[in-house]
Amino acid sequence: MLMCACCEETGRDNHQALFCDPQFPYEDVVSARKNDPAHSIQVKVKYQPGNLGVDLDAIDINRGLVVKAVLPDGQLAEWNKINPDSAIRPYDKIFKVNGKVGTVQELESFIVSSSPDLHLEFRRPQRFEAKLRRPGSLGVRLHYKKSSMGVLVSEVLEDGLATVWNINNPTRVIAAGDRILEVNGEALSPEEMVEKLSLEEEVSLLVLHYNQDPIPIRGI
């Protein structure tokens, strides 16, 4: 089986000025089952430094900041009350700030330095189940931290079950930047999911697909 998994034990995983790090409830995983196509959501607020009120996962350096939780006292919570049809929820991803793209560090910097008008563009993922059955390698590289929202797919290799799935399911493609939230119906810790993926002959994955390319790497 070819399934490379990388776990970061230490390192910066979120922006402390914007959010804390509460545990997100399992019902948020359940709500992620709805199979809508990936789409963008526009949010505009008068930014109050330090009061955006969101907990973010920054593990995918080149593809944006994934929402872990909208905190009850903050500007995004207020936005959600006023704009229920475009409310921000867990697993949405900030990929553009004030019209600018960048690495997660750059996006965080754009938010902190924004005043007074803050325009955030979120990406809401498509949710689907992918069923992979051995023999054969999964053909993916995975990345996570202990506090990650699921397990990040950092690369889909040319040879493997994931590529075979993609060929047979062009509307439900597994791609770099996607998140795996469940394995065989279980919402586990990232470490437990990776272990289960390495052992099971048949796996059903709950996948979040953002349909988004990474930002171009800038030359030096």
Rank of each mutant, 00 (worst) to 15 (best):
S204K: 00
N80R: 14
V153A: 01
N169H: 15
K68E: 01
K81S: 14
M149R: 08
V45M: 12
A5R: 11
F110L: 15
I111A: 02
H209A: 11
L18Q: 08
K34M: 13
I41H: 03
V140C: 05
K68F: 05
I215C: 08
V173C: 05
R124E: 02
E195V: 03
R12G: 13
I174F: 02
P190W: 08
C6P: 12
L18N: 05
M3V: 08
A58H: 05
R124P: 03
Q48Y: 08
I41M: 09
V43E: 06
L161H: 10
L76K: 04
K96T: 10
N62C: 10
R33F: 02
D73L: 03
S154H: 02
V70P: 00
V30E: 09
L188V: 04
G136C: 12
A58L: 06
V183E: 08
L199H: 14
P37M: 15
E108C: 12
P49G: 01
D55H: 15
C7V: 02
G11D: 12
E27S: 05
V203A: 06
D92C: 08
Q105T: 13
L118W: 01
P49K: 03
L199S: 13
L107N: 08
V151P: 01
R179C: 09
A32N: 07
D178P: 13
P37L: 14
G74D: 15
P190Q: 14
R124N: 06
E201D: 01
D13W: 01
F122W: 08
N83W: 07
T171A: 03
V104T: 06
L199C: 10
R33M: 04
E129Y: 02
I215L: 09
I167A: 05
N168H: 15
P90T: 01
L188T: 05
R63E: 02
Y47C: 11
I167R: 06
L199K: 15
P37W: 14
L206T: 04
K46P: 11
H119R: 15
F24T: 02
V30I: 07
G99N: 12
L142K: 11
S114K: 14
K93N: 05
E9N: 13
I111K: 04
Y210R: 03
I215Y: 02
E202T: 12
E9M: 07
M193V: 11
L138R: 04
D92F: 13
R12Q: 14
N184C: 11
E201Y: 11
S113C: 14
S147P: 01
L181N: 02
S115E: 09
G74Y: 07
N51D: 15
R134K: 14
E129P: 15
C20W: 13
D60T: 12
L181S: 01
C4S: 11
K46Y: 10
L199I: 14
S189M: 05
M3N: 09
G64P: 15
P216T: 06
C4M: 10
K100Y: 03
V29P: 15
E182K: 00
N169D: 00
D178A: 00
D60Q: 08
P214H: 12
P125H: 00
V207Q: 02
Y91L: 03
F110D: 12
Q75I: 12
N62T: 09
L18P: 00
E192S: 06
E191K: 00
R123Y: 15
L52I: 09
G150H: 05
